[in-house]
Design a protein around this nucleic acid. Sequence first.
DNA 1: GTGCCTATGTGTGTCGCCGTACAGAACCAC
DNA 2: GTGGTTCTGTACGGCGACACACATAGGCAC
Lengths: 259, 259
Amino acid sequence: MPPPKSPKQNRMLAALSLADYTHLLPLLELVSMPAGYVIYDLGLPIRYLYFPTTCIVTRLYETENGACTQIGIIGNEGLADISVLFGGKSSHARVIVQSTGEAYRIKAGLLKSEFEAGTELRHLLLHFAHALMIQTEQIAVSNRYHTVDQQLAYFLLMSLDRLSGNELHITHEQAGIMLGVRRESVTVAANKLHMAGAIHCRRGHIAIADRKQLEANAGENYKIVKEEYERLLETYLSSVTRLGQLPEKQFKRFFQSIE
Amino acid sequence: MPPPKSPKQNRMLAALSLADYTHLLPLLELVSMPAGYVIYDLGLPIRYLYFPTTCIVTRLYETENGACTQIGIIGNEGLADISVLFGGKSSHARVIVQSTGEAYRIKAGLLKSEFEAGTELRHLLLHFAHALMIQTEQIAVSNRYHTVDQQLAYFLLMSLDRLSGNELHITHEQAGIMLGVRRESVTVAANKLHMAGAIHCRRGHIAIADRKQLEANAGENYKIVKEEYERLLETYLSSVTRLGQLPEKQFKRFFQSIE
DNA sequence: GTGCCTATGTGTGTCGCCGTACAGAACCAC
DNA sequence: GTGGTTCTGTACGGCGACACACATAGGCAC
């Protein structure tokens, strides 16, 4: 049985050793993640953790008067949400599905045990946490110094890096909520990026027209985060790709769990 | 030999078990930390990690054109800087001493080994990391939504929570660098807080006059971070206070290492 | 096509902070 | 005290984003 061509998989899971992976596999459950689904909310206990495969997930913080800001974005390179592994007892942020897709979920307690026990999984998770922290820090800087144009460019790049295709299903209104700005500000910013030839807009869609141009608009912010994520992915890869080593029976089970 | 009254100690270290603590003790070295000392800088390798006792330490991010923003503050509840334990190979932020004092330092590689090996130390460090992440996230929110007045109030509270006394040695200029705003904006904000009866200013000094008033100005932001840090300290305390259990010889050595 | 709903584009006044400039005030050295 | 340096207070024009208001346009149901 030849392996399907590059099945959508969570890259952190794919980087695990055969032993760890087969150990974890029976604990994982593939679930579909519809856009807008609220995975965690402020103060609610965390029951499941999610390894995204094709969906992307946004970490938001909502202030008392209802205003939001994105504080992180997670695709198939990571896990939503690691805070529980660090001793957080409940969610301190709102975590929602930004783009429809699928994810493996696992009971929080189970993954926590694995995190305590297995050094390899822990290494990967910690490295991912590091990248996520850098992301948040960059957003903090961005929120102080950058214009809405720059932030929109950054947001589009970060999102599309985590999706196949180069088009995002999102309205200006939704993007505004993510960035913590008004819908009108997004419209104006999107038009500027369109004028610069960086993006192309349709009703409810934003597509990249010229990635270089978009990156130029996003500024150093994106570059720094991107580099850190590339380091992260290298770490994943330096764990020899293990799927090729799976015996056929497990292979079958693995891909069943995907379809 | 009676123990000196509440010696200034790093609270995370004080929360360690006797076994872990005595193991770590010979690796620690008390050093003085003058205000303004740059502990780490962008891209430089990290040789030592610091457990502050009486100093406080600021994590800053500096943009390409020289503008700064504080992304975290660390006192004797934590460690500067945890990123290396998470797989960071070099510093991605600038970390400087904000307030003169002392800290225990340890070679990064040694603490990393301890972090890998000892579950208890790791738990404490991870919980601290969690609190630090929340701090950064709150700063991200603050940078978007809050006025300079609010941010100054937050900054003063966070700093003074980590110092004995209720006065901060800092000029408006320095506070402006931390917050990423102009010196003049700090002056105006400080005057507003002064008018509200929250603080009292002298040349190069800012003192709290009315803490409640200052907290009211800082808003929800401070409350959230404070609560998380109180949770962290409870975790520290729930590790039974170990110093009372130290045999006299070790006690002596311990306090020698302080003086 | 027609109608409706939602998304997008545009304008106006306001607010907070910035950049710049300069005046006054506190502190230190002598 | 005197002088110099550093810190603090104040003012003004400009800009980016906001709040609000309203006009237009895309896409779907029928």
